[in-house]
Design a protein around this nucleic acid. Structure first.
Lengths: 316, 316
DNA sequence: CTAGGTTATACTCAGATTGAGCATAATGCG
DNA sequence: CGCATTATGCTCAATCTGAGTATAACCTAG
């Protein structure tokens, strides 16, 4: 028989509002933040998803709604340090199944050892709502170019990857490529996790490139962000993040938070109108500043019908 | 320590040409067909993908090119019968990681115990290239309606799922919902696998609903088809299935094979033109019937650039 | 060596959708 | 009341789509 295998389940639990997108993260002392995670118990759990719901409930008091599987990671050398994983045997190979969960409210989880964190703390280069972050051209690009240069035979390929991933030389910024960008930084040794996992010295940069996480959790989070950014365009998943009633501005803010991009307001609402995904409720929000906004609600019927639909995202 | 876990890797290896879409399947005596699969060896393989490539090579002589992870299945009760899985302990819980692989030619694999099979043999209701298959309205719909009827409290929900999945009552046919449809048939006990896995009598129908496969392999295949059908629209993956040079008709036929839908010829080529994904080569195909067609090739540069691009699929 | 079948490719045209603005409507605040 | 502020309405050109019609280039039969 081969070496034992342990299966870990990790969840990226997402909430979003006008202020930003949040992920539920746990604290692990000075090891840093992590995602809620636990071991899959083959005896206790009939399916992964049931297992996941069970211990997220136990660990964070959280009742999961929308859940989808993200990816299964099995690379040797990027696993959780053994000490972290309960009763798995020392020599076990750990594979982890990542899940994405969406929830409409940042439920209070103060009784548990988890907090809601703006996900851009972990990926500051991903937030373009107020324009392209300086970080990219000031810090990331030079470091990547240096890495490419030292690539010998693969220098050209490295350069090309960097240019496309980070939209250098006026290439277009493709927001879904979150994972690609993180992996590139990892490979280039610019993510603290890389040096940690490989036992090298941390990179010497002006500042750290986003807060690191334990194990490969930042990679799972990057996968989640990329997946979600892609998915809202062709499936009506944003609404899993919205409360019962919301203004169109609220919705736009949430979408902008997820994409990390500013959108064109009038066109956004026109597209939404046409999609038939929402309907006005007649009630109005007590204004925060100007004219009161109508409160909308999702047309649940519309979600089931028809071809794949999502919200359009007309860039500003 | 909990029960041991074994990880199986299964591959849906796809090829397609003007005649249809093919998957590489292995024979398992009277148990039926299956997908190439093997056990993940945590000691020998650094990553799943490397493991997969390794034993696909050994089992079918096949060198995989494009590979992507599909989904990880871990439901108890739908696994491979233990006998099938080499040296995993008897009491092990089996989880299987499904992969999709694309290849431009139906390489000869006659030396091995695997054959290329039209994937619609396993999902006859999915092929709408020559109109909606009679099977749906003649056999599937009545059976599903009967199942819905006997659903007690959930009758309405069942009916609704059936209507949307199989485009009853003039609802639109959404080709990507391959998995949803298969799961529905499974749940309704109309797939032979369901009765087998649950130890019930096979369903009484005019004919079998597609050829069954061992274990949960037909589910994995359905996942692959659905994924591929969605993906060709927003990523240029079809070209992984094309030879170096091809006519636009060839390309259209391949896309139609994958989608199981007829497309509008003139608009298909216009969209392709605009996409910039292909370029003419000046050479012409020796005609099969009428006017010779120009041979095109992929513009590799175009694949890397820009936002997500795929081929448009204007329905005929 | 021409008529007709067959497939490829070009072109048209109305209707719908998009990108980008300008204009107007309700609020609250000084 | 005048102004800042946010919401919502409307316009307009450019482009894209859906659905054809028209023409071109080959083959085969007679």
């Amino acid at each position: 028989m081969t070496a034992p295998i342990a299966v870990g389940l990790s969840a990226v639990i997402v909430a979003a509002d006008a202020d930003g997108p949040y992920a539920l993260v746990t604290r692990h002392g000075e090891a840093g933040s992590g995602l809620p995670h636990g071991q899959f118990d083959p005896e206790g759990h009939r399916t992964f998803e049931l297992g996941l719901r069970d211990w997220v409930q136990a660990q964070t008091g959280f009742e999961l709604g929308y859940v989808e599987q993200l990816y299964t990671f099995g690379d040797r050398g990027r696993e959780l340090p053994q000490a972290q994983l309960g009763d798995a045997p020392r020599d076990a190979r750990l594979i982890s199944v990542g899940y994405l969960a969406l929830t409409p409210e940042r439920t209070d989880i103060s009784a548990f050892d988890a907090v809601w964190r703006d996900w851009y703390s972990f990926f500051p280069w991903e937030d373009h709502r107020n324009g392209r972050p300086d970080l990219i051209d000031a810090t990331i690009a030079p470091a990547l170019l240096h890495w490419a240069d030292s690539g010998g035979r693969s220098a050209a390929a490295r350069l090309d990857r960097a240019r496309h991933a980070f939209a250098l030389d006026d290439l277009p910024w493709v927001e879904e490529r979150t994972l690609e960008r993180y992996e590139l930084l990892f490979e280039a040794g610019l993510a603290p996790e890389a040096s940690r996992d490989r036992g090298k010295a941390p990179p010497r940069l002006a500042g750290p490139l986003g807060e690191p996480m334990i194990s490969d959790h930042r990679r799972i989070l990057a996968t989640a962000i990329g997946r979600l950014r892609g998915k809202i365009k062709y499936r009506p998943v944003v609404f899993e993040l919205m409360p019962e009633r919301f203004t169109l501005s609220d919705l736009q803010k949430v979408v902008e938070s997820l994409l990390g991009l500013p959108l064109h307001k009038q066109n956004f609402r026109r597209a939404l109108d046409r999609s038939g995904l929402v309907e006005g409720s007649g009630a109005f929000a007590t204004a925060t500043g100007g004219r009161p906004a109508e409160l909308f609600r999702v047309r649940r019927e519309a979600l089931r019908d028809g071809a794949a639909v999502g919200v359009q995202t007309p860039r500003a």
